[in-house]
Amino acid sequence: MLRPHPLRALFACLVLLLSLPVYANWQQHHWDVMGTRASVSLWSEDDATDLFQRLETEMERLNQLLSPWVDDSELARLNRLGHKAPQTISPEFYQLLERSLYFYQLTDGAFDITFASAGHLYDYRQGKAPDETALADATRHIGADRIALLPDHRVHFRSPGTRIDLGGIAKGYAIDRGIALLKEAGIAHAWLSLGGDSYVLGDHRGRPWEVGIQHPRNREKVAMRLPIADLAMSTSGDYQRYFIRDGRRIHHILSPQTGKSVDGLASVTVLAGNSLDADALSTSVFVLGVEKGLALINQLANTSAIIIDRRGNVVYSNDLTAPE
């Protein structure tokens, strides 16, 4: 059996196994935002309609701030103009860039928001990838050391081809903001999910929430089930956005060194105290691979990882043990 985790429970993401009895005070809501599905289930003796609207409004605000696909977002504007002259951005966006550069240093470059310099050349819906010449040119502009954070919340890109994408951290941050809103409203028991990122607040009124890690090769199956409470979790997988070309899986988790999809792993789930960290670390471990990824996780307090490689082998960080 899995040993109790320091954060009181184990978790992974992608599939929530609710199978809950019907309670009058359990309320659920679902909506689409940030290119994925958001879901919340919470316990409240009051009608939660207004609270659900506040969650929707906050996440849409973040989408308008951080999406590279919204033309007038701060991120899109920085991508267009950041190489021409320093751009003044909001304190919130600036702090997220600071946190991104922290993870860039912590992971020796595995977490790199400038992967978008090559990433924008891929179209996963259309099954399109850049040719070798275009990819080689784009990767010359990858490297978060090309981002200069200046006083007064100004940012400058040192390379004209550099672009950023906060896809490895934005959804985790949105979850954290959502949980803050729930706490402010007096909610003590809730589950909030956005794509592969989730946070479980409290327990399920006396018993843990039952959550499963999606099987990376069969959307109808669960790789394992875990009871959790008061925990953030993020899963990065090669099955979330991908296409197959010449027998090779082309997915959205790119190597900052090559601009190509990372080989070797199928799924990485990270458990941490907040969703922003879990989000960034699940991406980082996927890029680093099993050995270097677990070495990173094992040195971090109150952080765990469950890795599934492409052969279906499961590996755990040192604080966890495999089911017997």
Rank of each mutant, 00 (worst) to 15 (best):
D277T: 08
Q214S: 09
R245K: 12
P208C: 06
I142F: 10
D279E: 14
I297V: 15
I307G: 08
R99S: 13
L254F: 05
D238R: 10
N298L: 04
R125W: 02
F93L: 15
Q95R: 15
G109M: 05
H252Q: 02
A118R: 04
D279L: 09
I213M: 15
W69H: 15
W69L: 15
R80V: 03
Y199T: 00
G119N: 06
G196A: 08
S193Q: 14
S67P: 08
G195K: 07
A138D: 06
Q87S: 02
F157Y: 13
A110D: 06
T114K: 00
D238I: 04
E184I: 01
L294A: 08
A170N: 07
I213R: 03
G82K: 06
A134K: 13
A136K: 09
R249I: 08
L226E: 03
S198P: 00
R225S: 01
D246Y: 03
V22N: 12
Y122G: 05
F111P: 05
L149P: 01
D263L: 10
D246Q: 07
A85M: 08
E74R: 04
G167D: 02
S304I: 10
S282I: 08
A118E: 05
G186W: 12
P208D: 15
P21H: 09
L296D: 10
L288V: 09
S282A: 13
S90Y: 05
P256R: 02
W209T: 03
I113S: 03
F157S: 03
E56W: 13
A190N: 03
R37W: 12
R3D: 13
H120Q: 04
D47S: 15
A295P: 02
G186V: 03
L271Q: 11
E98F: 09
E74C: 06
E45D: 13
G289C: 04
A322K: 11
I113K: 03
P21C: 05
T283E: 06
G82Q: 01
L55S: 01
L231C: 12
A136W: 01
L16H: 10
V33P: 05
R245N: 01
G161W: 02
Q53K: 14
H141N: 14
G161N: 05
Y102M: 04
R54E: 14
A174L: 05
G196F: 11
S317R: 12
P208V: 12
L192G: 00
R8Q: 14
V270C: 06
S41E: 10
E45W: 13
W26A: 12
S44G: 13
A229E: 11
V200M: 11
Q105F: 06
A229G: 00
S267C: 12
A9E: 10
E210C: 08
Y122V: 06
S234M: 11
A278R: 07
L265A: 01
A12R: 04
A76I: 06
G196S: 13
H83Q: 04
H30F: 10
A118S: 15
